[in-house]
Nucleic acid binder design. Structure first.
Lengths: 337, 337
DNA sequence: TATAATATTGTAAACGATTACACAAAATCT
DNA sequence: AGATTTTGTGTAATCGTTTACAATATTATA
């Protein structure tokens, strides 16, 4: 592979001069610059970034840790991060952790290993303690899912409020027997939404036994299954009249299974999702869901990251952006009221 | 930041010894190893990979170029690549090109800059010439979308055959007036499928005027729009009885728009997609689609990449894996036959 | 006990860039 | 013309590792 020395030899100058030309140092004579440029072209030279990074200790790359690539919710966020990073001359490297702590640890070590300048975590599968240890001192922002008591900037929505609002909405429609399908083990957001949900339930003096909290993975299949199992468990007792799901995929699975049994969605059973992903519009019936400002979340994450990168000692801002409930046909008044 | 010298000082040994311990060199006395291990722990030392990479000229990282993260089709492929790479101790770095040639170029330069050892391209937005120049001499495999006449290994399906088979299937149902919604400018696969499609049409002696080829982006919205525009253009003339779409998203958009107009899918209009993505199962009606062996595609891509990595001069294998048509309710016999 | 073989460890040269510093040549000023 | 500044270029140190090779300590052998 051709390196800076080869170019120097070819151009008949020193490596320092070649380096200056490459980096557009103004104080190099036009004639010299030309000689070097020609040599670069002749040899088809590309600077070795490893060498450069070692010296400059700066890579212009941001690591983005993603739990899964199949989760539609993240794609818009990534796009907006990409654009915001681009403006500052930074590139994004996405790494998929698949909820595998060992893998996540390995990728996070890229920070310590100086392979990237900074990182964004969209969701961690590590323990808060491990995560804190691994990232301590490095520019990192937590985005969407986060550990609250770790000293990093955070961008997300107010999940507790979103849970509260969702319950309020269903209650306002007349529902008094409601299910909550979440995933509290893996996602803090789910736990927070449940907290808010419970607050609204309590506020409206609905008995706790009227709330059915169940666990579900984020997939159509798991949504179907969770609904099916709930039916089994109830064993003839009346189903809830509304089901709130912490992701659109779960909600769609629920609708699928219910419809397969001839249950009418939006009347006999109201179903509500979360994230306002593309499918929520095109499924049947269109899904009522909670929308997060994904573009804003992405650009804000990058903004906070650069702030941290510039001034290491800066305050760890926490931004909670506004959510909205998008009402569609999958929810309505309960029929048997 | 603590480096190998600090550890050496702390442990009272030379940097060479520290390096040996880190890399599990067997010929280091147990007592020394212990001293070093302790120093490493005490100082919380992590080797700087930039330094290491510079020396070893090897990163154990594979670059994966992705046109977009929102495309569901790719996620399973990535997962299987990830697993196959992991087995060999390699990590994947995903880079999103967004169909932006400048961005793609920048990411490909990571190869030349030795920031990664190898790369996989899932779809390029560069010209074949630029792509060839940029990647010449580097271990790279093209996966799914590819330039046929560039010297790299290739993994994909036989798109022409898939197009042929799809047309055959629709014709066998009785359709004689058919639309093809593709994206021939951006995707070679679309062009190939169209070629196969045309062959089948010709083979069955169906007049060319009975085939309606239209361009569409890969999104629900664009599918809707393309269908709507086709209707406009036909201006009262009978619609095709079947529409083949090169992606599930287009197909679902088409169904949406048609259903909004009261057209019955599967009877009055047959719609067929491609890729067998998760939505194709859960949309209404479930979509007939062409399934690609995504897990196989991913692992094969990695397999060929490692072969290339090991023996630079190896033959550029081309593997075309088998596709299958998954028939569901969105297609049926035309009603007015 | 002297010597050879082996096991450990250290020294120093890479890897490929950047950059402080030194220095020579050219330009500017008395 | 001589002194001073400016301009352009080169020398060599440096970033953090790995790894030939040299050097030393240990053990085995005669």
């Amino acid at each position: 592979m051709v390196n800076i020395k080869d170019v120097a030899r070819e151009a008949g100058v020193s490596v320092a001069t070649v380096s200056r030309v490459i980096n557009n140092d103004p104080k190099v004579a036009p004639a010299t610059k030309e000689k070097v440029d020609e040599a670069v072209k002749r040899l088809n030279y590309q600077p070795n970034l490893i060498g450069r990074n070692l010296r400059t200790a700066c890579t212009n790359k941001i690591l983005v840790l993603l739990p899964a690539i199949s989760n539609q919710f993240y794609s818009r966020i990534i796009v907006s991060m990409e654009a915001a990073a681009e403006e500052q001359g930074y590139d994004l490297l996405l790494c998929i952790t698949n909820g595998n702590p060992a893998k996540e640890r390995k990728y996070l070590e890229m920070l310590q290993a100086h392979l990237v300048d900074a990182a964004i975590s969209l969701s961690s599968s590590l323990s808060p303690k491990d995560f804190a240890e691994l990232t301590d001192g490095y520019p990192l922002v937590q985005c969407c899912e986060f550990f609250a008591d770790i000293k990093t900037p955070i961008v997300s929505i107010d999940n507790e409020q979103a849970g509260f609002d969702s319950a309020e909405y269903l209650i306002s429609l007349g529902h008094r027997r409601i299910a909550f399908f979440g995933n509290n083990d893996k996602y803090v957001s789910s736990q927070l939404r449940l907290n808010g949900f419970r607050k609204a339930i309590a506020y409206h003096k609905i008995a706790e036994e009227q709330l059915f909290v169940r666990n579900s993975e984020f997939s159509f299949a798991s949504g179907r299954e969770t609904f099916f199992k709930l039916q089994k468990e109830l064993d003839g007792a009346p189903l809830p009249t509304a089901i709130f799901c912490v992701s659109d995929s779960i909600a769609i699975g629920v609708m699928q299974e219910a419809q397969a049994q001839g249950i009418k969605i939006g009347t006999e059973l109201s179903v509500m999702g979360f994230d306002n992903t593309a499918v929520s519009e095109i499924c049947f019936p269109p899904l009522t869901t909670v929308s997060q400002p994904r573009a804003d979340i992405g650009s804000t994450a990058i903004k906070l990251l650069f702030k941290k990168l510039k001034e290491k000692r800066s305050r760890n801002t926490k931004e909670f952006l506004p959510h909205t409930i998008v009402t569609r046909e999958s929810t309505g008044k309960p029929v048997n009221l």
